[in-house]
Amino acid sequence: MNALAASPDEPAEHARFAAHLRELARATDAREPAVVARVLGDPDRTMARSAVLRHLDRRAGDLLAEPGFAVWSEAMTRTVGDDPFLTRRLLEWSLLRAVVRQGPWRPDDLLNASDWLQLRAAATSNAEVLRLLAERGRTRRIRRTAGLNPARSGDD
């Protein structure tokens, strides 16, 4: 049976989504850009983007503390370059990496970032980030998460 074929009770896009996720998970570093590009070529653009987003989030999380993160992120940015949402997500992973590793970052970049990124940054141990988000995070949830983070205690 074709790996992309749906069962009678399952919509075709669900079967393709699952198959895309399996293929992305098995992609070697060298083949990853080609696999991502192929998945993005699926006729169901929303489903394809969702599969690639899930893959990028998994891989970025795995690589966040690794030296190869920047090279991987650049390769993925070139691959998804015409998709503003995926490109922004990769940029936000890079900003989160800077926050986590206490590398250079600008407060305005963090304050202008998505709720997704601010919430993840509020869960880090960077005291400067926690202070900023506790005071000026976009949502009450972000401000509360940053304010209650144990890494912030003793800072005030």
Results as ranks from 00 to 15, higher is better:
residue 61 G to A: 02
residue 9 D to I: 01
residue 139 T to Q: 10
residue 146 A to C: 05
residue 22 R to A: 13
residue 89 R to H: 10
residue 19 A to K: 09
residue 49 R to G: 01
residue 147 G to F: 01
residue 148 L to P: 07
residue 112 N to H: 08
residue 133 L to T: 01
residue 91 L to P: 00
residue 82 D to G: 13
residue 106 R to T: 04
residue 63 L to Q: 06
residue 125 S to T: 15
residue 28 T to R: 15
residue 108 D to F: 08
residue 90 L to R: 01
residue 68 G to D: 13
residue 120 R to Y: 03
residue 35 V to Q: 02
residue 99 V to I: 15
residue 86 L to S: 07
residue 89 R to T: 07
residue 52 V to I: 06
residue 128 E to S: 14
residue 124 T to I: 13
residue 75 A to E: 13
residue 30 A to H: 10
residue 89 R to A: 00
residue 83 D to H: 12
residue 155 D to E: 10
residue 7 S to D: 03
residue 156 D to R: 13
residue 56 L to A: 09
residue 69 F to L: 14
residue 112 N to E: 11
residue 99 V to K: 00
residue 12 A to M: 07
residue 60 A to E: 01
residue 97 R to H: 02
residue 140 R to C: 05
residue 103 G to V: 07
residue 113 A to W: 05
residue 60 A to F: 01
residue 96 L to W: 08
residue 57 D to V: 07
residue 106 R to S: 10
residue 51 A to H: 10
residue 52 V to G: 02
residue 66 E to N: 10
residue 123 A to C: 12
residue 112 N to T: 05
residue 27 A to K: 13
residue 58 R to M: 08
residue 8 P to R: 10
residue 34 A to C: 09
residue 129 V to L: 00
residue 16 R to L: 13
residue 154 G to N: 11
residue 64 L to C: 11
residue 10 E to F: 04
residue 86 L to G: 07
residue 13 E to T: 03
residue 28 T to M: 06
residue 143 R to H: 00
residue 76 M to D: 03
residue 145 T to E: 03
residue 15 A to K: 09
residue 116 W to S: 13
residue 67 P to A: 12
residue 86 L to V: 04
residue 120 R to W: 09
residue 6 A to V: 02
residue 138 R to G: 07
residue 21 L to M: 14
residue 128 E to D: 15
residue 72 W to F: 15
residue 136 R to I: 05
residue 13 E to I: 03
residue 59 R to Y: 01
residue 116 W to P: 08
residue 138 R to S: 05
residue 127 A to I: 08
